[in-house]
Structure formats: structure tokens, C-alpha cells
């Protein structure tokens, strides 16, 4: 845990020394959530990106959806969904997955504007994603290309949380079992059919609440660091 703290601190210092961008500085100067605080005390932003592929260097974010959790409740009022503009043509395959057309995507928000807006939203919050590697790498990639430095951020991963829960219980993990929609089934969460970034973010947020309530003592006592994998 210390290493994450150290890394974030290091990145923060470095970023503050290099960037002059006001919105980024605001983000950096604000207090970060402490990993020693409890889930109940923490504000979360559950994030999901739809991307053209898995490689953050080559691929692009098509859309982003998020919803916030505070006081252990998902706040639907905070839900947002944005299309991100990209000049790159989409490969036919990913279009069919996400049901978005080139036209719809080209109407989106430019990535720089979007990113600064997102920074404002995640200020002081812990970010959650399912299989956070994708969101994390894209965030770092964008931060690097816009500001030329890393983005200090605390992120939880519902997939990793589930993996740890199962490891602790000595339960074997079956192929595909940790996928978001299979896990939801496991927690008696409703089946969602749609597949867009916001719908996935809400689905992930619900999964997070389910995990917390089902496998840990009480969100009033559960600390963030116990969920950091």
C-alpha cells in the first residue's frame, strides 16, 4: 500500500513542478482520499470507457460513462455519459460491439476538454472500474499526451476485489466467471441487456456495493486500503 501512496506522491510532486494547466493543478492541489478512510466516508466515481481497442497507445476512447457513490449509495443524479470525438476511423469490429456509428462518435467531445472535465469530477474521489487496467492505462496515456506527466489517482478494481474474495475462500475461478455480467448474476443483481459505458458503470457500481455488503464486515469499518489490489 505504501508503494501506491509513494508513487502517487512522487507523481503529484513532479506534475505540480511541470504543469501550468490550471485544471490539472486544481486536481493535484486538492486533498486526495486517504487509503485509511472507510468506505462509508469515501466518495467514489465508478468509471467505464468504451474504446476502439485495448492498446492505449494506438486506440481511442469512444465514450465514457460514470456514476458516483456516496454514503454507500449510488447517486443516479450524478450519472453522466459522453461521446469522445476521434479523427481515427473505427475498425468495423468494435463498431458492431458498441452499436455506435462514426457519425455519433464524431459528434463527441474533444478528448482534451473531456479529460479536464473528468479531472474535476474525480477530484477528491476514489475511482472504481471493472478490470481497471484499461481505464487506468488510457487515463495515463491521455495525461501524458496532454500534460506530459503521469496522473496520480487511487483506483479500485471490482474484478480484482472479486478475485481476492475467491482466493481467500479457496474457491477456484472458472473461465469468464469474473466478467462483469457473470458476477452480477452471482450477486442476484438484475440482468442488463444494453451495453454502453454508462450502463456498464452503473452495473459496476452495483457490483461494488454487492461485494462490500456481502463479503466485508461493515462499510463503516472497511478501509479503502483493504480493497486496493
Amino acid at each position: 500500500m505504501l508503494s501506491l501512496f509513494d508513487k502517487n506522491q512522487r507523481w503529484r510532486k513532479k506534475a505540480l513542478a511541470t504543469t501550468k494547466d490550471e485544471s490539472f493543478r486544481q486536481y493535484l492541489l486538492n486533498d486526495f482520499p486517504k487509503t485509511s478512510q472507510t468506505v462509508s466516508e469515501t466518495e467514489f466515481l465508478v468509471l467505464d470507457f468504451e474504446t476502439t481497442g485495448l492498446d492505449s497507445k494506438k486506440d481511442h476512447i469512444i465514450s465514457a460513462g460514470w456514476v458516483e457513490i456516496s454514503k454507500n449509495k449510488i447517486q443516479l443524479a450524478s450519472a453522466e455519459h459522453h461521446l469522445i470525438s476521434t479523427k481515427k476511423q473505427l475498425s468495423g469490429q468494435s463498431v458492431s460491439i458498441h452499436n455506435l456509428t462514426d457519425d455519433m462518435i464524431s459528434q463527441g467531445v474533444p478528448i482534451t476538454i473531456f479529460f479536464k472535465y473528468l479531472l474535476k469530477k474525480i477530484t477528491g474521489k476514489v475511482v472504481i472500474a471493472h478490470y481497471k487496467k484499461i481505464e487506468y492505462e488510457f487515463l495515463q496515456q491521455i495525461s501524458n499526451s496532454i500534460f506530459g506527466c503521469h496522473l496520480p489517482i487511487i483506483m479500485l478494481d471490482t474484478l480484482m476485489i472479486e478475485k481476492k474474495i475467491r482466493e481467500k475462500a479457496n474457491k477456484p475461478i472458472v473461465v469468464n466467471e469474473l466478467r462483469l455480467f457473470n458476477l452480477r448474476n452471482h450477486y442476484n443483481l438484475p440482468r442488463y441487456h444494453a451495453h454502453n459505458a454508462l450502463e456498464d458503470a452503473i452495473a459496476t457500481a452495483e457490483l461494488f456495493l454487492a461485494q462490500i455488503n456481502k463479503h466485508f464486515s461493515s462499510p463503516d469499518k472497511l478501509k479503502i486500503k483493504a480493497l486496493l489490489y
Binding site: 454507500n72 449509495k73 449510488i74 447517486q75 443516479l76 443524479a77 450477486y187 443483481l189 452503473i202 457500481a205 452495483e206 456495493l209 454487492a210 462490500i212 455488503n213 456481502k214
Partner: peptide, 14 residues
């Protein structure tokens, strides 16, 4: 109504 909904989860017997 939809916009003001808050979602919570309770495990069995909670």
C-alpha cells in the same frame, strides 16, 4: 424520479 434515485444493496438477512 429516475434522476433522483439512489441505489443500495443489502445482502440476505441484512
Amino acid at each position: 424520479l429516475a434522476q433522483s434515485i439512489e441505489i443500495s444493496y443489502f445482502r440476505r438477512s441484512q
